[in-house]
Design a protein around this nucleic acid. Sequence first.
DNA 1: GTCTATATAGGGATAGAC
DNA 2: GTCTATCCCTATATAGAC
Lengths: 209, 209
Amino acid sequence: MIMKKTKVLSLDHHSEASILETAKSVFLKRGYFGTRMQEIADAAGINKAMLHYYFRSKDKIFEAIFRESFNCIFPKILEILNSDEMLKQKIQSFFSRYIDTLLENPHIPGFIMHEIAHNPERLNSFFQQHLADIPKKFIKQIKDEIDAGNIIKIDPRQIIVNILCLAVFPFAAKPLIQYVLNLKDAEYKNFMNDRKKILPEFVIRAIKT
Amino acid sequence: MIMKKTKVLSLDHHSEASILETAKSVFLKRGYFGTRMQEIADAAGINKAMLHYYFRSKDKIFEAIFRESFNCIFPKILEILNSDEMLKQKIQSFFSRYIDTLLENPHIPGFIMHEIAHNPERLNSFFQQHLADIPKKFIKQIKDEIDAGNIIKIDPRQIIVNILCLAVFPFAAKPLIQYVLNLKDAEYKNFMNDRKKILPEFVIRAIKT
DNA sequence: GTCTATATAGGGATAGAC
DNA sequence: GTCTATCCCTATATAGAC
């Protein structure tokens, strides 16, 4: 964002994007307050001064990374929940696609949950802007199915929260699950992949009349 | 732990226990790296020097608090899962008692999940010591019910994880849920209370043959 | 036990040479 | 653009008077 004009002339392998990618891995592992600019610089193979030259401040880097992480997750949710699929099909799509996304970005749920809980001042406006009324259409769809007698009488919001729980929690609590079930990384991944098939069946059995 | 002999003579209202309680609220709100000794001291109405006098270091306080938080949650889980109740009754007990516990300590899940993910060096030994083989008996119980044809064929570990998801996630992700569903604190609490009844029914419908 | 003052270190950010 | 050196502030921790 600084010296935009000369950027294309840079012959160095440390592009702004690649540094940001490195910074992302550090922030997602350590959280905002646990992250040291020095550690980012070391991991990126540059020095602190360069970090500040590119991004000005720790806050600016964090904001870019949070935005990117958020956009990696939530638009996809929105897209699925607002599609025109039938409820059953939609639930299947959601778990399948969402778990795939999280398998590729396993640290994002924990990162977002922690930062929104521990750093709310920084993020309040951001969330009010992007999260309001996400599930309106999906709630309506569930309500209609209830009225049609296809699923049991239940607060639609509870179903939505349950679906989110089942999809997201095992990623946010990955180390805990691995301890409790004694899973190595590969076994954990298999376990999560199985859930793409198990979870839709689980939810649909739970709510169908 | 220091000056134990004179402790009973202390006429001051700042007991070691009450300071620890204050420290707990700060650590659970801010996380380890976000916590400042100054903030604990201010909240407890003492000064930093006294904090160090009582507890020696930030790490020592953290360790005590983590241990306490952990013990507030996991023995209870263990107790329920290892009880002799029938499966259906056990699932009901679990959700009811566990959600009650979490409503009184809503920050603990997020705290433990974050610290174990971001601070693993500090906690590895602790967890290996306390978490191994927690659900052995419960898994056996589910297996027996499957063999008896009372519940569907499914990896018992998946059921356990689902139960944990449904109980814990809404607390770990409290701010997120409140944003998405537009819930004030009181509404959120009602929403969680409803889940004590909804979740056992949800899970049992999902797995019964 | 409690306070003030201070030692010591670490981290974010900048200055300025090249 | 890149580096070294450094500023400045904050945070943990301790010394020492009372």
